[in-house]
């Protein structure tokens, strides 16, 4: 058994192991960083650290959502990096039996570009298990590639 943080994104529930989570907090906006990848919503300060916020909707290719009272950021730590994930809502922490994880059906992992590595059926609920390192990816993200001059990519999202 292992503890997982459950969050929702466009009506789908995802699970993230608790040991990768530093904290959760409500989200009121981030400071845009010119030149960062489009799925980076900006930076926030968490415990005095300047932390990038990945908008998981954009990362997963979903339509962006307005800020609501439920909007949360989940601050994660993995491989020495601290990165926050913006999600629609995150309320639950559940104990899941690791043995009951099933490999993600190919259609799921394709749609989620490999970000989901397993699924977990819990009664009638289906939880998607995320591969955090894939989401953070880009550990060798080259700032020069997100060129400021070349306007075709790496455009930060403007506030709506």
């Amino acid at each position: 058994m292992k503890l997982y943080v459950i969050f929702t994104l466009a009506g789908t529930e995802y699970a993230l192991p608790v040991d990768a989570v530093l904290q959760m907090q409500s989200f009121t906006g981030a400071t845009l960083v010119p030149g960062a990848p489009a799925y980076v919503a900006g930076i926030v300060t968490v415990r005095g650290l300047v932390v990038p916020v990945i908008d998981l909707r954009v990362r997963f290719g979903l339509p962006p959502a307005e800020l609501t009272l439920d909007t949360r950021i989940i601050v994660t730590e993995s491989e020495g990096r601290v990165v926050a994930l913006r999600v629609d809502a995150a309320r639950e922490v559940l104990k899941l039996d690791v043995d009951k994880h099933q490999p993600a059906p190919s259609v799921v992992s394709e749609r989620a570009s490999g970000f989901v590595h397993a699924v977990h059926a819990l009664g009638t609920r289906l939880l998607l298990l995320m591969d955090l390192s894939k989401i953070l990816g880009e550990s060798s993200h080259d700032p020069a590639r997100a060129s400021l001059v070349d306007g075709t990519k790496a455009r930060p999202q403007l506030p709506s």
Partner: peptide, 11 residues
């Protein structure tokens, strides 16, 4: 600003 995701020239 440490994370590679948000390191950019001029910042």
């Amino acid at each position: 600003i440490n994370d590679v995701l948000v390191r950019a020239p001029g910042i």
